[in-house]
Design a protein around this nucleic acid. Structure first.
Length: 837
DNA sequence: TGTTGTTTCGTTTTT
DNA sequence: CGAAACAACA
């Protein structure tokens, strides 16, 4: 992907009419872009059209099922493809593009195809390449919302008040910038954290709101009512910096289209076909962007195809609007809706479990996945109980080792085929610990990413400043890295001077060293920095960029800084810097590389090792594994308490969709776990099995016999579910769990389940307000006595419902340390214990 | 300026 | 409880 902006011609890539159905001279991409693929040197469209010219049905259509084929061939008019998990969504999308090209309906550059992640875009390019034989250099408008936004803005920057070489800021830059603004405003940056405000701005931008549009309440909620002013000041600052944040990459194009109907009209003509992947994840801004492009005047066809699955919408918390997909038919009257329900991934049991679970959600478009694959050894979904998370990890580790050695049929399983999907990342640690002691290979997906590392960001700041001397944020980042004696006071002086004159800081520095403003030492140091940058920017045009990059890092003393670093990280960081330089080789210029990095903040994982994957449920979306482990299915963790508190009913439904996503990742085997005790924020808490367990269909689920220490103690009449019994499904509909579910239903109609006014769900153990009954789903479970004197004293003999009998060792408010006869010393809430004897 | 103590906070994450 | 971010200090 070479996205350097200076080589993008404006509307001159192809004639602005559709290609003729029987072209005499097929368009051929420039020689430099032709692939080395065996199929030879013809362009994609040419190859695709060649395929069409043969009189049988084209190869790419064979092997599609009827629904898929319909989704591929219905190219004219608006289409919504509801593609369930594992139904061949990507295949439809890519084949559809191949079909459009093959039938000569459009040139590659006349197709707008939008994805959410770079990974998805990459995969689509590859797969289209396979279909039409060769790399897809000819599809310039296949990419993420953001990368396409950048492309639009580079072309039309001046129409939204930017220069076309604008910088894209990452979250780190944004936070530092906001912090400066908050301080400049004379506000306390402890009371008003920049991070939080950055989050608010992000939220507003997701909704397409500019400073004048934000609700009064929001504006007042931050910085003593200065929220709106601060937001406006931030935007103004971005403008003077000639910079965009991620949100702007969506908002500016919207602004551009609204204010320049002629430009919009050009794009209407240009994009003959529009495709959108993961439509359920679009936020309001993306939706507005898309509508501007897709809703055409009557005389231009609306060939828009959105693909998504409302049941897999799990990003509501970051602004995604499921409504967008639910509303498609209204937005595009006459839209054809095609359902893909034939699943090629999972066993009947897994689909049955997932389908039954998700059926508990309301407001779905409604799909039922089915499979024709049925094998005698298909395993049901298995639910396991464990005493605590340590045992959970131990048991999962054992199961993995068993599979590795060979399952009941003697088949040996690869670790690569197994994944542990957790709700929250803190759960990962226990598994990592366990796997380390077992010597089991694992890989964590989704941790801190390559380009987010300190040394990479520093290096990038150097490169940015060389390419873009006005990049003040980059300047401030590295001016004193490595240490040059240019501390706060110097930087502050530079900053003030630059702001007063409205010039970049690097220029300000050049001015200021001519004066006696600074102490000689600082002046000398600054002089050296300026000289260096001057030198580097002169080399920019004629030196190979990897060479220049190395030179910059060496001459600035940055590599030496890490060589002299005595901490354990030093060598690793140097290695990362080398890796950074290596990855630059694939690009034509430093500029091109910077553009890539600002948008594509991911790096590939090493796939060659056989290892169990550990990741969150969110990052598992789109993946599949032979065997999936789903630990932590407990109330409060999954569904997460906070989702319930803040999202109410819809929050619960999103959690349920997350469970659905988890289940549908599994191809053959799915093991769910819950524990009865979990340490949360250092405190032991008794936990209840997740309500989602009660929502699984008995017919497709087995409950594992208590395999170890679980189950010794009774559950004391509350917190029960059918999973407490050896045979929980014996009479499913009279168990406490089911009754509780019934109770919920009546609750739900009564208080609308979690409106802000308060509902029956509260967190245990955070009682700051007075003593009151803490309940989950209306059942009494504990009393918090945070600010009443504890009724326990050191030495008391007490009984805990999970840990049994013990002696109180110490008392701190409502927290007790108890030495249990069996479980040893634990910290517990006093609501869970009672005095005995 | 590097070290040490103190405070705060605790879900999910892409661009 | 434990990590991370920050403030105070030598």
């Amino acid at each position: 992907m070479t996205n350097s902006f200076d080589d993008i011609p404006f509307f001159d890539e192809e004639p602005d009419h559709a290609p003729r159905r029987t072209p005499t001279t097929p368009p051929v991409p420039p020689a430099s872009q032709q692939s080395q693929h065996a199929t030879g040197g013809l362009g994609i469209a040419a190859r695709a059209m060649a395929a069409r010219d043969q009189h049988r049905a084209p190869d790419y259509l064979s092997g599609l099922n009827p629904e898929q084929r319909e989704a591929v061939e219905t190219v004219d008019g608006p289409v919504l493809v509801l593609a369930g998990a594992g139904t061949g969504k990507t295949r439809v999308l890519t084949t559809r593009i191949a079909h459009i090209l093959a039938t000569g309906r459009a040139f590659p550059s006349q197709i707008l195809a939008v994805t959410f992640t770079n990974k998805a875009a990459r995969e689509m390019k590859e797969r289209i390449g396979v279909l039409v034989g060769g790399a897809v250099e000819g599809m310039p408008w296949l990419g993420t919302f953001h990368s396409i936004g950048v492309k639009l803005l580079r072309r039309h920057a001046e129409l939204v008040g930017l220069r076309s070489d604008f910088t894209i800021l990452d979250t780190d830059d944004v936070i530092r910038l906001i912090k400066q603004l908050i301080q400049a405003e004379g506000l306390d940056d402890k009371r008003w954290p920049a991070r939080q405000f950055a989050g608010m701005i992000d939220g507003w931008k997701n909704k397409g709101l500019t400073p004048k549009d934000i609700p009064e309440g929001d504006a007042r909620a931050f910085a003593n009512g200065k929220g709106r002013e601060l937001y406006a000041a931030y935007q103004a600052r971005l403008k003077t910096l000639n910079a965009c944040d991620f949100g702007d990459l969506l908002l500016h194009p919207i602004d551009l289209f609204r204010r320049n109907p002629d430009v919009l009209r050009d794009y209407h003509q240009k994009f003959r076909y529009i495709l959108v992947d993961e439509y359920q994840d679009t936020n309001t801004a993306q939706y507005m962007w898309l509508r501007l492009l897709a809703q055409r005047p009557k005389d231009v066809p609306q060939n828009v195809c959105c693909v998504g699955d409302d049941d897999q919408s799990i990003y509501g918390w970051r602004g995604a609007e499921v409504d967008n997909i639910l509303r498609f038919e209204k937005d595009f009257p006459g839209a054809k809706v095609i359902r893909l329900e034939r699943n090629y991934r999972s066993t009947e049991h897994i689909l049955g479990a997932a389908g039954h679970l998700i059926a508990h959600n309301e407001g779905r478009l409604g799909k039922t996945l089915f499979t024709e694959r049925r094998e005698p050894d298909d395993e049901k979904v298995v639910v396991h109980a464990a005493w605590d998370s340590e045992e959970e990890a131990r048991a999962v580790g054992e199961t993995i080792e068993q599979l590795q050695r060979g399952d009941s049929t003697g088949k040996k399983h690869n670790l690569n085929d197994m994944a542990i999907l957790v709700r929250a990342s803190f759960q990962m640690r226990e598994f990592e610990d366990r796997f380390v002691t077992l010597g089991l290979n694992y890989r964590v997906i989704g941790g801190p990413r390559f380009y987010e590392r300190l040394e990479i960001r520093d290096a990038m700041a150097y490169f940015r400043l060389v390419c873009q001397p006005a990049d003040d944020l980059a300047f401030e980042r590295i001016v004193n890295t490595p240490k040059r004696g240019l501390g706060d006071t110097t930087v502050r002086a530079l900053h003030d001077y630059a702001r007063a004159r409205d010039i970049p800081m690097l220029a300000a520095a050049a001015d200021i060293i001519e004066t006696d403003e600074l102490k000689p030492k600082a002046r000398k140091a600054l002089f050296d920095v300026i000289q260096s940058f001057k030198r580097w920017s002169e080399l920019l045009e004629n030196t190979p960029h990897t060479e220049l990059a190395e030179q910059i890092l060496d001459e600035s003393g940055y590599t030496d800084m890490w060589k002299n670093d005595k901490s354990a990280e030093g060598p690793g960081r140097l290695e990362n810097l080398k890796e950074l330089i290596r990855s630059m080789e694939a690009f034509e210029s430093l500029r091109g590389f910077l553009e890539h990095v600002s948008l594509v903040m991911d790096a590939e994982q090493n796939e060659d090792m056989d290892a169990v994957s550990i990741m969150t449920l969110h990052s598992a979306k789109g993946l599949e594994f032979e065997t999936v482990f789903l630990p932590g299915w407990e109330e409060g963790l999954f569904p997460h308490q906070r989702a319930l508190d803040e999202g109410g009913r819809s929050g619960l439904e999103e959690e349920r969709r997350l469970a659905y996503v988890g289940l549908t990742r599994a191809k053959r085997r799915c093991h769910i776990w819950f524990v009865s005790n979990r340490r949360i924020h250092g405190l032991w808490q008794s936990t209840m099995p997740s309500r989602f367990l009660d929502e699984l269909p008995p017919a497709h689920v087995d409950v594992a016999e208590s395999e170890s220490s679980y189950g010794g103690y009774g559950r004391g009449g509350y917190g029960q579910s059918r999973f407490d019994k050896a045979d929980p499904f014996a009479n499913s509909y009279s168990t406490p769990g089911w009754k509780r579910a019934q109770a919920n239903k009546t609750d739900a109609t009564r208080d609308n389940w979690g409106s802000r006014s308060g509902h029956a769900v509260e967190r245990i153990g955070y009682g700051e307000s007075g003593p009151r009954a803490k309940t989950i789903d209306g059942e009494l479970i504990a009393k918090s006595v945070a600010d009443t004197p504890s009724k326990f004293a050191v030495g008391d003999r007490v009984f805990h419902i999970k840990f049994g009998n013990g002696n109180v060792v110490s008392v701190e408010g409502n927290k007790l340390t108890i030495n249990f006869d069996r479980a040893g010393e634990k910290r517990v809430l006093d609501g869970f214990v009672e005095r005995v004897g």
